[in-house]
């Protein structure tokens, strides 16, 4: 079975899952996703910067109703968690969570980056996106 990323230039899976951000060479601010200009100092000297794969949950919710297009999830809707994860000293990244159980989610919980299947394309390929999985216990 083949798989492909949901978009180029957002994350890699080799050798381990990492997200691609941009770092301003002038003021050091890190921005995800990578973009051309720095939102803080307005300069355009932004370079590739791979984010660390672990952080803590900054906020979260559960998506409990099926989103309209352009959402491309499984044919039969399954609720999913969404959260922001703070990568210490870097930035705060929004992403899918691997759990939709509120009892497993609390602000400050350690989280780790992983890749999950978002949907299956017409040619049978798994289309992958990034997500955060809880680690550690309360």
């Amino acid at each position: 079975m083949t798989s492909r990323p949901i978009a180029d230039g957002v994350f890699t899976d080799a050798p381990v899952p990492r997200l691609l951000a941009g770092r301003c060479e002038a003021c050091e601010v890190v921005t995800f996703p990578r973009q051309g200009g720095c939102p803080r100092c307005t300069r355009r000297s932004v370079v590739d910067h791979w984010l660390p794969p672990a952080g803590v949950l900054w906020s979260w919710t559960i998506q409990r109703f099926a989103p309209k297009a352009p959402y491309r999830g499984p044919a039969e809707f399954v609720p999913y968690g969404v959260g922001y994860v703070e990568l210490p000293g870097e930035c705060i990244v929004e992403g899918r969570l691997t759990t939709a159980d509120p009892d497993e989610l609390w602000i400050g919980r350690p989280m780790e980056l992983t890749l999950v299947v978002n949907h299956v394309d017409g040619d049978g390929a798994d289309v992958m996106t990034y997500a955060f999985a809880p680690s550690g216990t309360r």
């Binding site: 949901i6 978009a7 957002v10 906020s59 979260w60 919710t61 998506q63 989103p67 297009a69 352009p70 959402y71 491309r72 999830g73 999913y80 969404v82 959260g83 922001y84 929004e94 992403g95 899918r96 978002n118 949907h119 996106t129």
Partner: peptide, 17 residues
Amino acid sequence: DWYGESGLMLTTQFFAM
């Protein structure tokens, strides 16, 4: 497009979080 396709393009999620 990946942002919407992966189910993050909802105002409701922002307000909830």
